[in-house]
Design a binder for these strands. Sequence first.
DNA 1: CTCTTTTTGTCCGCGATGCGAATTAAATCT
DNA 2: AGATTTAATTCGCATCGCGGACAAAAAGAG
Lengths: 413, 413
Amino acid sequence: MKTADPELMRAINRFHVMDAIRRFGPVSRVEISQLTELSSTTVSAITAALLDDRLIVPLQLGAVRDAGRGRPRVMLRLNPGAAHVVGVKLAHDQITVAVTNFCADILRSLALPIRIDRQTASVIGDLVEDGVRRCVSDAGLDIAQISGVCVGLPGVVERSAGVCRQSPILQERDVRFGADLGHRLGVPSTIDSDVNLVTLAEYWFGQARGLNDFLVVNVERSLGLGILHNGELFRGANGLSPDLGDLIVPSLNGGGERLADLASEASVLIEAEALLRENELDASLHQGRAIALLLKRAAGGDERCARTLAAAGEALGFAVASLITLFAPPMVIISGRAMATSDHFIAPLRKTVAALLPASLADVSDIVVREWSDETWVRGAAAMTLRDLYGAPWGTTGPASVRDALAPQVGEL
Amino acid sequence: MKTADPELMRAINRFHVMDAIRRFGPVSRVEISQLTELSSTTVSAITAALLDDRLIVPLQLGAVRDAGRGRPRVMLRLNPGAAHVVGVKLAHDQITVAVTNFCADILRSLALPIRIDRQTASVIGDLVEDGVRRCVSDAGLDIAQISGVCVGLPGVVERSAGVCRQSPILQERDVRFGADLGHRLGVPSTIDSDVNLVTLAEYWFGQARGLNDFLVVNVERSLGLGILHNGELFRGANGLSPDLGDLIVPSLNGGGERLADLASEASVLIEAEALLRENELDASLHQGRAIALLLKRAAGGDERCARTLAAAGEALGFAVASLITLFAPPMVIISGRAMATSDHFIAPLRKTVAALLPASLADVSDIVVREWSDETWVRGAAAMTLRDLYGAPWGTTGPASVRDALAPQVGEL
DNA sequence: CTCTTTTTGTCCGCGATGCGAATTAAATCT
DNA sequence: AGATTTAATTCGCATCGCGGACAAAAAGAG
């Protein structure tokens, strides 16, 4: 088990300082001292070390003149050039790659609209490797300048082991994608559930900033769940990220069904296909079009289309109610593409949640809807890697099994 | 936010040493050094302080002669008399009180078979106060010698605030039971979900000892859920303990229902009443008898009774499958009185879980059945208080909100 | 019985850390 | 130009964990 020594002490405090600088933009040492409750002496020492390592830089511009009298504060901020990382998002029909700097600003991104559905891991590995190399090169960087890569993909992912246990976009099970990509690129590479990435992005940059407990439910072709609990991404035992689609919820025909078969785009599409085929050309059924058409119909007053969406919303409402019961988060973020933002989907969801929650939890959770760009996702992937670079020493003081579960095990090179 | 200073360092290491001594019985300094990975110097210093504080004592008896040659090891163990704490368990038909020493050995226990169902909090407070005073006195102790009291009760409990949000045995909502009892007794008092207590007891003394992730599902009159995650009791945001009965699971008539209405003893009793009333005297329906009769009938081949139990088992199976999906624990402990251990209840539960789990999680969880005595419960309550006395400094290094959520806020006196 | 060997536990000095008080630095106000 | 105010650094101190030297306490060898 990791022992608590002065080194750990410093690591913890250094992380707090870094975190304060990252979160509160250009910030002076006094402010850091207040935010972290560290003495100004300690903050000075730590920032000096960080400046020495070029992880942070002083904001030269005296532009920020505060009305005060005394010696002006020296504002500090992350050094954008301190490191570069790559984020990758794998979706069934697209690979998105982005190169970011140390501030998680996207320098260059690349979208490969390729159906990788049910491809072999090795084929996908080829595509990702090429995409990363290309994107890094386009950003004017050399692959050797990249400090880390993080890949997000749907399914059950065991980040600590770098293994994707099962994913809708992979044929194989238990794919060691992290180490594989690490070998290919010669850069430490990790994988994580795609929703975890966007959850972290939401925590770092989004509207849940500073909110230490919230849930993210992502509705796309498959269903994802991200949990931020006590300011940390929640993972099951062994660092397993849960898959929301595997939850069992009541279905109309009695009994239960996998949520993925009731409330994902994929499941709605099957419903929709039957409904729409009666009147429309098959061409319109191609991919996302069908959802768009379904939404249009529902908006136009088509009862059956509205019912289809409502059923999906209600099914997800069951799951969200259960999750609120377990985690009592002040905020639940529902996200996805067109469907998730449709009121025909969200209104039944809200209604179901309200009906099912016990009185004691009735008002604890705000349910908000939000749509993300592809950039949000890859920015989350970058943030995940940066979080490692910052050196968050969490969980290192617990029993050995705890540490092993939390230690990010990057792909060796 | 709590800052990482030498004091915290020491607190962490002291906790590890205490934990090692508690877990591995009489143990020598060298062994502690190996277990904690602290240097022998540090272990010596810490144990010296602990000895000085009389929290631990050397095992005088040279009885334990190890075959080795050199200087014999001095075995250290917790000092049973270092402190005394009281555990209380509130159930709908009984109040159980126990006084334990610093090793969580029960010195004296007291069972008050009183129906406190739907009593006011103040009446229950009276009963608990009297019970605690009586039990402490019976143990030959003065109330001033008690270092802490922990009360376990079913329902939604916010331990950090000492508030019981809602409980089947309380009329009122948001009862500040912890502070109230603290005032009454003049002893720091906390409350927690009853299942959390038994979960901790299972972790400290039971068959899940050393298992850092497991679930406890308790089936009695109401349903409870305890989650041990990464070696710590899991609580929702704000330290809220979830209530399993509030989960929504599919019901036979389509749609969902609260699990408490499907799989608790209370719900089964309602079913059972209808079935049994046809043939039996009302007298036999009194309380737990009905369950016993139901089980006997089912064992005797009564199809309808067996169905009733199976339906309850299946409903709980749905919930357990969802929980395994979320937490992926290596072990799930099902417990309760007669019903929970009946194969007519457990077999359908297992079957349902097996049918619902995705392939990737099929074999991660052992489902075991276990029955606890009342002593197990109150021992857990004692352990919860002792854990505070040991001074586990967890979560004190996170952002302020984290610390506030985790800091056990004892009832002031 | 004495001396050696072996293992355990303690003492001393080192380096790292955080912190409080004093000090220096850099601006504005008078 | 000097006083005032605020920011940041420097210095001295206490605590901590650790490695190495040292003392303690037993068994085995002679």
